[in-house]
Design a protein around this nucleic acid. Structure first.
Lengths: 230, 230
DNA sequence: AAACGTTTTGAATATCCTTTAAAAAAGTAT
DNA sequence: ATACTTTTTTAAAGGATATTCAAAACGTTT
């Protein structure tokens, strides 16, 4: 593996904490303290991933993110943002600007490592098939633009939550998603809820989807998955 | 679920309040009154999460936090800090040191439970995301993401317990696992059951696995092992 | 403020899995 | 070969988890 990570962060303590733990996890680490340096370094010595603090002196992290994503030389480098806890708006904006994941402070070093690995892995996986806005599965089409599921018998309208669920399932057919993963993926990290909620959504989804719904399997004690096509 | 929480707090009233509410929420609870004991206990009897008061007698909570995060034996245990009313500086410092969340006093018991659940969930979600995907052995593939064993003849579904068993075996081919070790690994330390239970699971596992099942060997008087490949 | 659709929650029910006990089989020692 | 111990298998009871329903909470639109 041995990917190179560029840390963009001005607080020394955090830099050291991250540097130490990323090195432990076999990453190469490079650091800069502000946005201008980040842009420069990303071009001169491109990392495999950028860990970007939103709260930077001088130039805001969001702007850095946008600049990185607009420059053809750097736009393919994945970005993981570090955001303060309750800044929901930042999160949304950051993701819109092309960040690949975000971690809310406070974070544990361990979590940072895990998330970075997840992003890198996801990237490698998706390099194969380029981004479609339609997903075909089990004879139906999930149309991301229309926000609908299209079947022979017509279109099925889903609520936002239901749509996220089926999209997540359909993007990784066969993979089992635990309720924890589902809650993280759909509601975000700072959601406090009980996991019976997931069951209810799955239940309604199955009913609405008709035949496709029969392919959503329960893995007892583990989670749910969409049956793989053969 | 049933995680174990270590409370590090010197005020008896608060300890009792927390203990009662965490027990209600199906956590196991352990308590110590000072930092030195906390470090000791975290090593001897590691909890799943530490609830750490910043204001401790003798050794400050921040120092305890740093020590816990620097010790390889305890650094992966998530820490939730209890801090006095909005002492911004403490908060920041604590987070820099790797605490996973913080709660400001006065807190409601309900909030504590919710936050602990959120931290644990977050961590588990990341862990699952991180898992290496496949183990190959004896011509079959154990696919962790799918939660299935894949053979030439198709996929085999296992229950959660059975899957843990075969995964454990396959990760250390040739190693003999005693029933006690297996029970520890699968059900956790504080499980009281008779070891005939293990036999039953192995029996069902062998049957479900077909050919691979024939490679699960009984070591008379000792335990079980998965035959090593040649 | 009322009406609507959606999400979340709690509880009753249904389903599936685990554990136990007991009998049969296999292994070991004398 | 026999007596003894350990393992395997089976089936039933008990426990845990999942599903569904209905009601409450929430958010949005009118």
């Amino acid at each position: 593996m041995e990917a190179k990570i560029l840390i963009v962060e001005d607080e020394r303590d955090i830099v050291e904490l991250l540097r130490y733990n990323l090195r432990e996890a076999d990453f190469k680490v490079d650091t800069v303290r502000n946005g201008a340096d980040a842009l420069q370094r990303a071009v001169d010595n491109p990392p495999d991933l950028i860990l970007l603090d939103l709260m930077l002196p001088e130039v805001d992290g969001l702007i850095v993110c946008r600049l990185l994503k607009n420059d053809p030389r750097t736009k393919n480098i994945p970005i993981v943002m570090l955001t303060a806890k309750t800044e929901e708006q930042d999160r949304v904006t950051g993701l819109e600007l092309g960040a690949d994941d975000y971690i809310t402070k406070p974070f544990s070093p361990r979590e940072v490592v895990l998330r970075i690995n997840a992003v890198l892995r996801r990237l490698r996986a998706s390099e194969q098939d380029d981004e479609e806005n339609q997903i075909e599965t089990h004879g139906v089409t999930i149309d991301l633009a229309r926000h609908q599921v299209l079947t022979e018998d017509g279109a099925i309208d889903l609520t936002a939550t239901e749509f996220k669920l089926i999209t997540l399932f359909a993007r990784s057919p066969g993979r089992v998603f635990s309720r924890n993963i589902l809650m993280d993926a759909i509601w975000g990290q700072e959601y406090y809820g009980i996991d019976r909620t997931v069951d209810t959504h799955v239940s309604r989804l199955r009913r609405k989807l008709g035949d496709l719904g029969k392919h959503i399997e329960t893995v007892y004690g583990v989670g749910y998955r969409l049956k793989e096509e053969k």
